[in-house]
Design a protein around this nucleic acid. Sequence first.
DNA 1: AAGGTTTGCAACCGCGACGAA
DNA 2: TTTCGTCGCGGTTGCAAACCT
Length: 261
Amino acid sequence: MGKTPCCDKKGLKKGPWTLEEDELLVNYIKKNGGHGSWRSLPKLAGLLRCGKSCRLRWTNYLRPDIKRGPFTVEEEKLVIQLHRILGNRWAAIASQLPGRTDNEIKNLWNTHLKKRLLCMGVDPQTHEPFTSYCSAHKAPGIPFYPSHKGHCHSSNPSFRKSDDDFFLRIWNSEVGEIISKIQYRRQNSVGTSTTTSNQNEDAECKSSKSYAENQIAASNSSSFNDLELEDSSDTALQLLLDFPIDNDMNFLEEKIDKFTE
DNA sequence: AAGGTTTGCAACCGCGACGAA
DNA sequence: TTTCGTCGCGGTTGCAAACCT
């Protein structure tokens, strides 16, 4: 297989695109009714960029059908479900979310959803609950103490316990303590409407937990331990998918069915 | 207020697939 | 059948902004 670089990198610009460059690229594609060969496009369009860079910029940001802005709860649900089926096939997942790009979904997963699953004690790769601290720690491809993309930094030994219900573990863990502190802080703080990344992260954990708590309280006829471990993965995912706003999964089933056909 | 740390996201890199010659 | 050129995909990095102490 030829492994020659896609373009001569000498003299090519790297880093963030300027508005002028965006314009040049968009105008060229509009004018020619398509991009043609990405390799030759930069030269033809008058850009000092690698063809790959042009393709990335176009497919992820300049394409007219791209929907920018935050993901909706429904979209997040769909991403989680699709990830469970497809794994890290970002392009395949993106194809099921109109207007969303693989890069965008990848970022969403790595910065929000993965963290949320970890907070719930669910392995983001397998979508199975962690049965012990070790399995969580050793989960393939999941840095439990990531250096750069920090997620759930729990080192609480309570994760070692093989409690039947992982929500109880979470509740008894450092995460639970953090959540309690946040709730206390929020009760005592007024008018902070700005949502910071940390607050969002905390909120994600909080939402997961408070919802789980409600579920537990609601099932007063059965004890906490009645939740079967075998079903805990599905239960956890269901809880996760349900907690934000509504419980309507119909739209999701429809999309999944369509996908699996 | 300042310096250090964390986070989110845009962008890049390299591998593998695929089609053409 | 083999080689080469190109593209798409998934993983990773760099950097600016936000946050924390």
